[in-house]
Nucleic acid binder design. Structure first.
Lengths: 112, 112
DNA sequence: TTAGTATATTCGATCTATCGAATATACGCA
DNA sequence: TGCGTATATTCGATAGATCGAATATACTAA
């Protein structure tokens, strides 16, 4: 059981482990949005957004409701926003390390 | 910058997105431990543990110090424990969904 | 120096994630 | 019915993560 609980947690973390999905959660923190509006705000491909939304749906992180032609998404539990806020504090507490890590991320991005 | 911050957060979440690494953090929450002791507690391969520790080290999530033959690991910032605790509350809040999800995880595990 | 113990790294195989392009579905309106 | 718009799914290519086996490194003690 302990192991299954860890798999569950790992699964939730996995679903947060992508910049686009974090951006989606941040977009939803102030209320529900239609998929199209999210897409516009993030400036990504329609299919790509839909894939990320499918991941968040499958992990029960977002709720969705259809209204006519559109699908509105919302956060199921604001505690995840709380986690993101904690991460910001964490980031600030480790700013010099974070800066170094960001440098590495940026360097990798440039190399590719 | 906003994007880099999201990459940083995603990177941290990625490093938490594995049951073994969650188990490591839980083991360390009460204080530092030698790698060997962690290995014994988790019951996994030595190389495998070392690989997971390398990931946690590279993301600055754990600190390590050598003492003679051994390497002692500890959490760099208790805020991550806080995050794990929040996840436990999250888990409880979504217990029925979680149960379903665990069922799916277990089913997949059985199929493979 | 040699042997033994603790930990880290490298390698290759396998599995999982991500992307854009193409296509499918579902709805509203003429 | 047929067309346009919004969203979802499938596909194939590429990149990244994970594992155990083998090997390397670092330290201790004889």
């Amino acid at each position: 059981m302990q192991n299954l609980l860890r798999e569950y947690k790992a699964d939730i973390f996995q679903s947060l482990a992508h910049p686009t999905r974090i951006a989606i959660l941040e977009a939803l923190r102030d209320g529900e949005m239609a998929a199209g509006a999210i897409q516009e705000q993030l400036g990504i491909e329609q299919a790509n957004l839909s894939q990320h939304l499918a991941i968040l749906r499958s992990r029960q992180i977002v709720a969705h409701r259809k209204e006519g032609n559109q699908v509105f998404y919302s956060l199921r539990n604001p505690v995840l926003v709380e986690v993101l806020d904690i991460m910001r504090r964490y980031f600030q507490a480790h700013l010099s390390e974070a800066r170094q890590m960001l440098g590495e991320i940026a360097a990798e991005a440039r190399t590719r």
